[in-house]
Amino acid sequence: MAKRYRVCTTEELQPGERKIVDADGRSIGVFNVGGSYHALLNLCPHQRGPLCLGQVTGTMLPSPVGEFRYGLEGRIIRCPWHGWEFDLTTGKSVFKPERVKLKVYPVTVEPACSGSQAENEPRVETFPVTVERQWIVLHV
């Protein structure tokens, strides 16, 4: 069964931002892509580079010869070693989506007063001060 890890509150991870967290020795990047949250293993399948430290960008879409069409802004991450591009929302590579892909993890957003316990949450009874606060939770 998946373990649950609190990443941060939703206010702490704005669109376009990332957090790199250590979940049981696994380095995982959690990204806010236009308001939705996605988590990827911070390990490029090519040469095990620190992929999640790469640039979040868009890419050139397939186009006729001689034309350039930019798209997917904010949805692509480019590995800092060798420049391989991946879709943050699926983990699939741009150049060979079905063959080369990253390990992705589910991410949920839960109210701070949620009854379920996260792995890294102190196991004491707490009383949330503001009920509006929401946690981003990573399931590994």
Binding site: Y5, K19, I20, V21, D22, G25, S27, N42, R48, P50
Partner: peptide, 12 residues
């Protein structure tokens, strides 16, 4: 869980 934990996973 440490924020900005092991930024360079290759070493391990």
């Amino acid at each position: 869980m440490g924020q900005q934990g092991s930024a360079n996973p290759t070493r391990k």
